[in-house]
Amino acid sequence: MTSLPTNATTTAPEFGRIWFDLLNSGPISEDPGSLLTGETVLPDGRTAALAAVVPAPNSPFPRARQGEVGLRESLSLASWVASLDNPDKPLVLIIDVPSQAYGYVEELFGLNTTMATSVQAIASARLADRPVVSLVVGKAISGAFLSTGLQANRIVMLDHDGVQVQVMGKQAAARITRRTVDEMEKIAETFPATAFDGASFTTLGAVFETVVPKSAGSPGDEDSASALAAVGRAVDDILNSSGNDLRCRVESEAARTARAQSLLVRDAVNAQW
């Protein structure tokens, strides 16, 4: 086989593992596919299932060693979510996923199919009235975010420099849209949807609450308490709302400004149906 380039420049803290360890109060179970699962206790005493996809440096899948979501990660997550009992128990997904796994064997096997299983599992849990909250603690990129966090009823997001939400890396996006990185950054000032930072993503109206940690890289008890308090409020909001769909994302006040067309199109389709 061919030798694969490894990304030796990854020096950012492993926010996913750090925050999982901080919040986890149950026995840690580490799946070979780099899925951490455990439990956390919300401020009202309720226990929630907890999971994070984290880097697995020894994975036999070289393209999924840096925390990328690949074949095993998506299937493991789907399998674990589908196996959860007690449908009232909330599910908290800790998100720090740099990208989907880019590789030959991934596409040969069908990464789109395995990612569909985790989407199906999380969406099915939500539709079965299990409260699902994503806690974005680091990167939330493209297919990796779609398959791990975006089917949650509510999204809670940490506000720190390590948080990124985008659909493609800066260099690649610049190349494809035939712009320089400088031009892209200038455009992002006017179009928050193209920016990378968490605050810009929040303006699109899909984030339930933002939490500013004292230290994102080495969080303490205070950070744990404020994150869990926000997750707890998200769970309460889910339980107090009537639907189990994602409508709150298009109906939020921010979305009515930043994504006004998303609601207008729905209204028009209904009217013309």
Binding site: I176, F201, L204, R259
Partner: peptide, 15 residues
């Protein structure tokens, strides 16, 4: 790519 995260959110809603 020009609509980036707006497309991302839309696709999650399609899923």
């Amino acid at each position: 790519l020009q609509e980036a995260n707006l497309g991302l959110l839309a696709i999650a809603e399609i899923h």
